[in-house]
Computed example of a mutant assay.
Amino acid sequence: MSKPPIVTSNKRKWLIMAILTVIVAGVISYFASPHPDGLERVAENNGFIDKAKEPSWIAWIQGYELPGIQVPILKVGLAGIVGVALMFLVLYGLTKTLTRREEDNNVGESDHHPS
């Protein structure tokens, strides 16, 4: 039986892609639309937008801007980078967990299976 395909062993390529992703997220996030998204628009249209003015424990980066930074492009750009970093950590954790489970399931199996 053949071994499963390897995505790539070229770590340099993945590192370059990760760095470019972080840079692009940091730059492009500054140019995101200032207009309300779907949920904010519904809240505005129905008159309950003011109820959401208080910070929430689940809103880690309120308004997609890091507090305490005065330069607009930096506070928005860094918020984009933080978002990418958090997403990377979540996905990395999930893939590590899934990889370990797959390895645990394959323990004791030989490379040669009878046909």
Rank of each mutant, 00 (worst) to 15 (best):
residue 86 L to V: 14
residue 65 E to G: 02
residue 32 A to V: 10
residue 91 L to K: 00
residue 44 E to N: 07
residue 83 G to W: 02
residue 79 A to I: 03
residue 100 R to T: 12
residue 104 D to M: 03
residue 80 G to E: 13
residue 95 T to Y: 04
residue 72 P to Q: 09
residue 92 Y to G: 00
residue 44 E to T: 06
residue 68 G to S: 01
residue 96 K to A: 08
residue 5 P to Y: 00
residue 74 L to S: 10
residue 34 P to H: 06
residue 19 I to N: 01
residue 24 V to S: 05
residue 18 A to C: 14
residue 83 G to L: 05
residue 97 T to A: 15
residue 4 P to W: 03
residue 17 M to Q: 14
residue 75 K to E: 08
residue 102 E to D: 14
residue 79 A to R: 03
residue 6 I to E: 00
residue 104 D to I: 03
residue 21 T to R: 06
residue 77 G to H: 05
residue 29 S to N: 13
residue 101 R to E: 07
residue 24 V to A: 11
residue 46 N to Q: 13
residue 98 L to Q: 05
residue 1 M to I: 06
residue 5 P to N: 02
residue 98 L to E: 00
residue 44 E to D: 11
residue 13 K to H: 03
residue 45 N to M: 13
residue 20 L to Q: 09
residue 2 S to E: 11
residue 67 P to T: 12
residue 73 I to Y: 13
residue 59 A to I: 01
residue 8 T to P: 10
residue 57 W to A: 14
residue 74 L to R: 09
residue 114 P to K: 07
residue 60 W to R: 07
residue 102 E to I: 13
residue 15 L to G: 11
residue 95 T to S: 05
residue 108 G to A: 09
residue 5 P to A: 06
residue 14 W to R: 03
residue 69 I to P: 04
residue 61 I to N: 14
residue 94 L to S: 01
residue 1 M to V: 10
residue 99 T to Q: 11
residue 58 I to Q: 12
residue 16 I to Y: 08
residue 51 K to Q: 14
residue 57 W to T: 13
residue 96 K to C: 08
residue 45 N to K: 14
residue 21 T to F: 10
residue 58 I to C: 11
residue 38 G to M: 11
residue 28 I to Q: 08
residue 5 P to I: 02
residue 4 P to R: 02
residue 35 H to G: 08
residue 47 G to I: 06
residue 3 K to L: 13
residue 48 F to W: 14
residue 110 S to I: 00
residue 74 L to H: 08
residue 67 P to I: 04
residue 11 K to F: 06
residue 56 S to T: 12
residue 77 G to N: 00
residue 61 I to Q: 06
residue 94 L to H: 00
residue 66 L to E: 06
residue 113 H to S: 13
residue 53 K to M: 07
residue 37 D to R: 03
residue 114 P to C: 05
residue 2 S to K: 10
residue 98 L to A: 08
residue 73 I to V: 14
residue 30 Y to C: 04
residue 94 L to N: 05
residue 88 F to H: 12
residue 36 P to M: 08
residue 10 N to F: 07
residue 59 A to E: 14
residue 47 G to E: 06
residue 72 P to A: 11
residue 92 Y to I: 07
residue 102 E to V: 15
residue 67 P to C: 00
residue 31 F to R: 04
residue 7 V to Y: 11
residue 19 I to R: 01
residue 63 G to S: 10
residue 105 N to S: 08
residue 102 E to F: 12
residue 86 L to E: 00
residue 54 E to D: 12
residue 15 L to I: 13
residue 104 D to G: 01
residue 110 S to M: 01
residue 12 R to P: 02
residue 76 V to T: 15
residue 93 G to S: 09
residue 22 V to S: 02
residue 79 A to E: 06
residue 77 G to D: 00
residue 75 K to H: 13
residue 78 L to K: 02
residue 70 Q to S: 15
residue 53 K to L: 08
residue 90 V to Q: 01
residue 28 I to D: 07
residue 25 A to Q: 05
residue 36 P to D: 09
residue 32 A to Q: 13
